[in-house]
Nucleic acid binder design. Sequence first.
DNA 1: GCGCGTAGCATTGTGGAACAATTCAGCACC
DNA 2: GGTGCTGAATTGTTCCACAATGCTACGCGC
Lengths: 232, 232
Amino acid sequence: MVERLTVVPLHRVSTVEAVANAVRAQVLDGDLTPGTQLREVALAQAYGVARHGVRAALHSLVQEGLLRHLPNRGVFVPRLTTADVTDLHTLRCAVELEAVGRLADGAGSLQGVRKALGALASLPADAPWRDLVMADLAIHRAMVDAVGSHRLSRVHASLIAELRLGLASLSEKGEKRSSMLPEHRDLVAAIAGGSRQRATALMRAHLDQAATDLAAVVVPAERLDTYWTAES
Amino acid sequence: MVERLTVVPLHRVSTVEAVANAVRAQVLDGDLTPGTQLREVALAQAYGVARHGVRAALHSLVQEGLLRHLPNRGVFVPRLTTADVTDLHTLRCAVELEAVGRLADGAGSLQGVRKALGALASLPADAPWRDLVMADLAIHRAMVDAVGSHRLSRVHASLIAELRLGLASLSEKGEKRSSMLPEHRDLVAAIAGGSRQRATALMRAHLDQAATDLAAVVVPAERLDTYWTAES
DNA sequence: GCGCGTAGCATTGTGGAACAATTCAGCACC
DNA sequence: GGTGCTGAATTGTTCCACAATGCTACGCGC
C-alpha cells in the first residue's frame, strides 16, 4: 500500500545554474548594456566561483540566445538588429499562433490567461511603462503555457527573453498605454469565442504590430559589426 | 578602396563542439540505446579530452533536449514516451505550419524543397526504410529553412533531433513506403498553389498522422521511471 | 527471510593552477 | 599607407585534487 502524497518538484540549483540565473537577470534588467563583454575571471571572482563554472554558465546563456560568443574573444551582450527582430517575430508567430489556435479549439484552460489579464487591468493608471510591458508579456506567456506543452513553453520563454534585449529601449508612446488593455481583452475574447480563424487573425495582427514597433527603435541591420547579429 | 571578395563562413570547431557533435551523432544513429548512461571519465579518455570538455559537451546536448541530466547521477540517453511525442508534435506543428503558411504566401523560394523532394524520388525502390525517413525529414527541414529564419530553423533542427530518438524504433509499414512520395508531392504542390488555407490543412493532417504513427510504437506515458520523460 | 544501518566505492560537482592559443594594441620600420 | 614584430590580456584546454552524492553490498539483529 503506497501512500499518495503530493510532492513539490524540489528544485536544487547547481552553481553554474545560479551563476547563469544571476547573469541572465542582469542582462534582462538592462544592467549590462549591449556590447559589453563578460570577462570570465571578473565574473568568477565576483561570484566567488571557479572559472569553469562561469564558462559553463556563459555557454548556457549563449545557447539560450541571450549572449553572443566570439571564438577566442569572449562573450558579449548582443545588440538586436532589425534582422533579429524579424527573425524573432517569425518564431514568435509560429509559437503563439499555434497556441492561440489550440486554445480557440478548446484545448487547455484560459484560467491562467484571465489571471494575467487581470494583473494588467489592475495596474495603476500611472504605472511605469516597464510594468505594462511585463504584464503584456505575462499574458502572452500564459497563453502559451495554457497549451500545456513544456517544449513549446520553453521555446517561447527563450524567445521572449531574447526579445526583451531590444524591449529595454522601447519607449512609451501615449496611445499604446491606453490601447494595451482593450486589445488583449479582445484577444482573449476571440479565443474564448472559439473561432480559430478569428483568434489567430487577431493575434497575427497584434504580433505584427509589436514587431514593427520594436523594429522602429532597434538599430537597422547595417553592419555595425556583424558580430552581434549572426548567431553561433 | 576595399576589395569586394566573397568569403566562406569559416567556422572553427572547438573541442567541446567536436565532442558534442560526436556524441550527438552516436545518439542519433542509435549507437547508444535509450537508458544508457554517458560517463564523463569514460568519454574523456575515449575522445582524449579533459573531463571539463566532456562536461561542457554533455551540458550542451542536455540543453538541446537530446539527453537528460539527473543531478549527481549523470546524463542519460532518454526514452521517448507518448507524452514526449505529443509535446514534440505540438512544437512541430507550430514551426512547420507557420513555415508552410509563409511559403504558401510566396515568401521564400521552393528550390531547396524541390531538391529534397527529388532526393526522395530518386531513391531506389528497395532503399532501406531508414533512408526514406531521412529523406522525409530532409524535405520538412528544407521547408522550414526556405523561410529564411535562423531561429526557426534552429528550433526545428533541435526538435527533429529529439524526435529521431523515437524514430529509430519506427518500423516500416508497407503502405507507408508507397504513399510517402505522392504525399509530399501533394504538400509541395499545395504550397506552390499559393493557398495558405489548403497547404496548412494538408500539412497538419500529415503531421498528425506522423505523430500518431510514432506514438503507437513508443512506450506509453506510464511512469517507467519518471526520469526520461520530464525535462531539465 | 526481512528490515535497517553502515561502510566502501563509483561518479558527479566544484575549485585551483598551469600552460597553450589567440587576439589585440602599440611601435618601429620600410 | 602598409608590413611585421613584440608583449600583454584573454580565452581554450588540460591536469589534479577533493567534497558531495548516490549506489551496492555486506553485516547484524530480529
